[in-house]
C-alpha cells in the first residue's frame, strides 16, 4: 500500500519537475521584450475599448503612445485631460490640457419643426436613407432620425426622443466620436463641454439658401448673418448660408441667441433670462 503511494508521489513529482524545466526554457526562448510602460499606460486608460482615440482598443492606443514617445495628436477622449496627465507622467512628458468635450446634435428639425412630406418604408438605417433620398422633411442636411448614432454608441449616451424623432445626448457621453463617424450627414459634432455644461451652438447644418431651408424646416439657419454682427468676440462665421459658432472663441454671452430670427441658435443649461417674452418663447421652442 505504502509503496503504491510512494511510487505515485515520486512519479508525479518527477513529471512535474521535468515539465517545469521545459516550460522555463520555452518561456525564455519565446520571451517577448516589451516596454513595461505599455502595461502601465494601458492600466491608466479607461479600458472601454471604444475606439474613440482612433485605435482599435486601449492596448493599441497604449502601444502607439509609448512608440510615439510624445502625446502629439493622441488623446483619449473618454478619460480626457485627467487620464492624459497620468499617461504623460508615466511617460515622463507634459500633457497638453484639452478641455472635456461632448457630442452635440446640430439639428432641431423635429417632427413639428420640419414636418414629413413623404413616409419612409424601409430599414432603419441612416446610411441607407441618406443614399435613398433627401429625408422625410426634404432637408438634405438634417437628421434622418433612424438612429445610426444610437447603435454606434458604446456608452448608452445617445437616444432618439420619440416625441421629436431627434437624438438626444445624455451625461454618459464621453466624446469618443463614434456617433460623429456613424452619422452620414455629419449632424453631430464634438464640442467643448463648457463651464457648468453651458453650451451655445447653431442647431442646424443646412447649407441651402435661406428661403429653401426655411421651406422645409422652420428652425433652420437661413444664413442671415445677424448673429455674426451680434457676436462681440468674432466667434461666429458664416459660410454657405450657414452660421457656425467656434466653441474655442465663444464666451457664452448669449447675445446671438436672442438675435436669431428662426431660433436656430441653442443655449443649454443657462439660468432663465429675466428679459421680456420673446427670448423665453425661443428657449421654449428649443426645448
Amino acid at each position: 500500500m505504502n509503496e503504491v503511494i510512494l511510487y505515485s508521489l515520486v512519479s508525479l513529482a518527477g513529471i512535474g519537475s521535468v515539465m517545469a524545466v521545459v516550460l522555463y526554457f520555452v518561456a525564455q526562448k519565446f520571451k517577448v521584450i516589451e516596454d513595461p510602460r505599455i502595461d502601465d499606460v494601458e492600466a491608466s486608460l479607461p479600458g472601454a475599448n471604444c475606439g474613440g482615440c482612433g485605435f482599435a482598443g486601449c492596448r493599441n492606443f497604449a502601444e502607439a503612445l509609448v512608440k510615439n514617445e510624445s502625446l502629439e495628436g493622441l488623446n483619449c477622449p473618454v478619460g480626457g485631460s485627467a487620464t492624459m496627465t497620468v499617461v504623460a507622467e508615466i511617460m515622463g512628458l507634459a500633457a497638453d490640457a484639452s478641455e472635456p468635450k461632448i457630442a452635440v446634435v446640430r439639428c432641431n428639425g423635429s417632427r413639428s419643426h420640419a414636418p414629413a412630406k413623404v413616409v419612409l418604408d424601409g430599414v432603419s438605417s441612416c446610411a441607407f436613407a441618406h443614399s435613398l433620398f433627401s429625408g422625410e422633411s426634404g432637408c438634405p442636411n438634417g437628421c434622418l432620425g433612424l438612429g445610426d448614432c444610437v447603435t454606434s454608441c458604446q456608452f448608452d449616451a445617445i437616444h432618439i426622443d420619440p416625441q421629436t424623432g431627434l437624438p438626444v445626448v445624455n451625461e454618459k457621453c464621453v466624446a469618443c466620436g463614434a456617433c460623429v463617424k456613424a452619422c452620414p450627414r455629419g449632424v453631430i459634432e464634438l464640442r467643448n463641454k463648457g463651464k457648468k455644461d453651458r453650451r451655445i451652438f447653431v442647431s442646424c447644418i443646412n447649407t441651402e439658401k435661406g428661403a429653401v431651408a426655411k421651406k422645409n424646416c422652420e428652425v433652420a439657419c437661413i444664413g442671415c448673418g445677424k448673429c455674426v454682427k451680434a457676436c462681440p468676440f468674432e466667434a461666429i462665421t458664416l459660410s454657405n448660408n450657414l452660421a457656425y459658432i467656434d466653441f474655442e472663441k465663444c464666451k457664452l454671452c448669449r447675445k446671438c441667441v436672442a438675435e436669431c430670427p428662426t431660433g436656430a441658435i441653442h443655449e443649454l443649461n443657462f439660468p432663465p433670462r429675466k428679459e421680456a417674452a420673446p427670448a423665453e418663447a425661443l428657449t421654449e421652442a428649443n426645448g
Binding site: 413623404v118 413616409v119 418604408d121 433620398f133
Partner: peptide, 8 residues
C-alpha cells in the same frame, strides 16, 4: 396622403 419612399 403622403407618398411612400422605399428602396427598390
Amino acid at each position: 396622403n403622403l407618398l411612400t419612399i422605399s428602396g427598390s
